[in-house]
Design a protein around this nucleic acid. Structure first.
Ligand SMILES: [Mn+2]
Ligand SMILES: [Mn+2]
Ligand SMILES: [Zn+2]
Ligand SMILES: [Zn+2]
Lengths: 142, 142
DNA sequence: ACAAAAAAAGCAACAATGTTGCAAAATAAT
DNA sequence: ATTATTTTGCAACATTGTTGCTTTTTTTGT
């Protein structure tokens, strides 16, 4: 597991440092997505806030994690599982945000749908965020 | 036009004040969506920053405007055209964000698609944001 | 294993954004 | 017109994000 982390960093031409190992570890041990605040709390006790910002930034650039837009003005981050690479993401799955537990999940198997746009508009990327109740929060009988 | 603004405020049980008239006017004279920063710049010169926050908040609550999530951590706001009411939005259109001019548009005629979710997930609301080149920025010949 | 070079982390200072409580002012109701 | 209600502006503060620079750590090459 810890070797896996080092390998991932090496594969992306990143030097192995404490903060990168720690933060990447957080993502690997996490089902859903993480908001910046979560990461600061969990990792930031050991590291400077600025380091967390810079680590997340470089992880996004390298295609290790991707961002998920949400309506509450706090970006979430999640691991890329679509073989993204430096400067080129191709995450095309949708995201689910539970209004109950407030977790955000990548639904990696659900591909973003095609959207027919009005004449003149050209699409390069589609983000779909579905809100509702997640499988863990589903009411027992419903 | 100015009567229209007052009527909208009255219809929503809001008292008629300078800041509300001004900010609602901005939205009515605007094709795309407005980021908080835009509104502060255009209206905030006359009004306190706090007033802008509170005005936007109450407009959202009343169903006069809705928010649009974006990946750059700056919520955009746009007029509701779907007869939204207090506490109950039913904007079901998609949004388009131009990577060139950075405008955000409501594509009011394009309804959000149905999404087939994995077992256990229940959807209550769907947000779709398409990125690309808008009709105004389209390259001449393409 | 060591020294030199390169990269990252930490620190401090700052900018931008968002929140809250309260007194003064404006608006609405009587 | 007076009173009651609502909204505003202000001040103070909290949170979030950015930048430049020095020190420390990691990597590279020997
Ligand atoms: Mn994802
Ligand atoms: Mn819209
Ligand atoms: Zn849940
Ligand atoms: Zn454009």
């Amino acid at each position: 597991m810890h070797e896996e982390i080092k390998d991932m960093l090496k594969k992306n031409n990143l030097s192995i440092t404490g903060s990168r190992e720690k933060i990447l570890g957080l993502f690997l041990n996490q089902e859903g997505a993480l908001a910046h605040g979560d990461i600061e709390k969990k990792a930031g006790e050991k590291f400077d806030r600025v380091t967390v910002y810079r680590t997340l930034q470089i992880f996004v650039e390298k295609g290790i994690i991707h961002t998920i837009p949400t309506a509450d003005n706090s970006i979430r981050y999640a691991l890329c599982k679509d073989n993204c690479s430096e400067g080129h993401h191709h995450d095309q799955h949708i995201h689910f945000q539970c209004t109950n537990c407030h977790n955000t999940y990548c639904l990696d198997d659900i591909v973003t749908p095609d959207i027919k746009l009005p004449k003149g508009y050209v699409s390069s990327h589609i983000e779909v965020v579905v809100e509702g109740t997640c499988k863990n929060c589903k009411s027992p009988v419903a």
